[in-house]
Simulated scan of single mutants.
Amino acid sequence: MNPKGPFMTTTVSIRRANPRDVPTIAEYNIALASETEDRRLQETTVTDGVRHFLEHSEFGFYIIAEIEGKPAAQTMITYEWSDWRNGVIWWIQSVYVSKAYRRRGLYRKLYEFVKTSAQNDGGVREIRLYVDRENVAAQHTYEALGMQRSHYLLYEAEV
């Protein structure tokens, strides 16, 4: 193996997800909830939710990073209309990198794909994401990519 890591000799490809990716995306979302919020999600609920999302492009889309044809990371983009900007804000959500591939630049590649896609879209005015305030490593990653901390706080209420 290459001493600089497996990415030096492997190909990373980034693409939009398709229905064949539903099982992987569901698996990654379940792992994400477990690792970040210590929440156990129901596999059937998550699988149905991912499938529904992919069937409704008006909600957004998933992006998959593959290494040698195998899914290694994902993120989801959802849309928010901004009347202040007369355009769309893309929200980056459900970021997950498989444990076997962490700390190797996969999120950077996903983000670059998102940013380029947003620039090419013509209607996207901003890219946003939220991050757990205690996830300092992720915050450093986002800042290193040129993202800035927002002045907004996030509030929520379950219904």
Rank of each mutant, 00 (worst) to 15 (best):
T141L: 13
E80A: 06
D48R: 12
Q42N: 14
G49R: 02
S34T: 13
V50P: 04
T47N: 08
K99P: 10
Y152A: 10
D38P: 04
D38G: 10
H56N: 06
A26K: 00
Y28G: 03
R128K: 10
R108M: 00
N120E: 14
N86A: 12
R40L: 15
R20H: 14
T10R: 14
T78A: 11
E58Q: 09
A26Y: 04
Q93Y: 00
L129G: 00
T44M: 07
R85M: 15
H151Q: 04
R16Y: 11
Y107W: 06
Y101W: 07
S13G: 09
K115L: 08
E68P: 02
H56V: 03
S82W: 12
A72P: 05
E35S: 14
H52W: 13
R16H: 12
Y152V: 04
G60D: 12
T10A: 13
N120S: 09
L110S: 02
R51A: 09
M8L: 12
F7M: 12
Y142P: 00
G5A: 01
A17Q: 03
N135Q: 08
N2I: 07
S117A: 14
D48W: 07
E126P: 03
H52C: 06
G146D: 06
E134F: 11
A26N: 05
I89C: 06
N2W: 09
I64T: 01
S34V: 09
D132N: 14
N18D: 14
E143K: 08
D121R: 04
E37Y: 14
N120T: 07
F113Q: 03
R40F: 11
S117Q: 05
A157Y: 15
Q139M: 10
E58K: 05
G69L: 01
G49M: 07
S34A: 15
G105T: 04
K99W: 07
Q139E: 08
R39G: 04
R103P: 05
Y101G: 04
F61L: 09
L54V: 01
H52I: 02
P19T: 15
P3L: 11
L154D: 03
P19H: 12
K4R: 08
L145W: 12
N135K: 07
S98M: 04
R125H: 06
N2V: 05
F59M: 11
I92D: 00
I14F: 01
H52L: 11
G69W: 00
V50Y: 02
F59V: 00
